[in-house]
């Protein structure tokens, strides 16, 4: 289900879950697909949530699962959070765990700066 865009020169991969709701119904599939990317040595990930209007606790679980797999070998950030998703990130303190950017370009620029 995910759509990916690769920015070759810096090895940054923008991942779009391409669903409106990231919930118990599809969070595991989403996680598995992104884990496969990580296993293919993609270690700079931008999760673009622009299509996602709602994310539940399973969605949060999936995001943290990715973070755990990546460990300190790489970086995972989020961008384009809707107000509902932002609220969910705030109430679960995920806003302190994931750096968040207004859009994919801002996220890419920020990662480039750190490379």
């Amino acid at each position: 289900m995910i759509k990916t865009r690769l920015h070759d020169e810096y090895g940054i991969c923008v991942v779009n879950p391409a669903v409106e709701r990231l919930t118990a119904a599809n969070a595991t599939a989403f996680k598995e697909e992104v884990l496969a990317l990580i296993d293919q040595k993609q270690d700079k990930l931008v999760i673009d949530l622009s299509d996602v209007s709602f994310l539940d606790s399973s969605g949060i679980g999936a995001m943290v699962g990715l973070l755990k797999r990546l460990g300190n070998r790489g970086e995972i950030v989020v961008c384009s959070l809707s107000s509902g998703v932002q609220q969910m990130f705030k109430i679960t303190r995920m806003d302190r765990v994931f750096s968040s950017y207004s859009d994919a370009n801002a996220a890419i620029a920020a990662i480039k700066e750190r490379v």
């Binding site: 949060i60 679960t92 303190r93």
Partner: peptide, 13 residues
């Protein structure tokens, strides 16, 4: 309340 880490999601928070 304004939020807080969930339980058993992350170590050492």
């Amino acid at each position: 309340g304004t939020g807080g880490f969930p339980v058993a999601l992350l170590a050492g928070v």
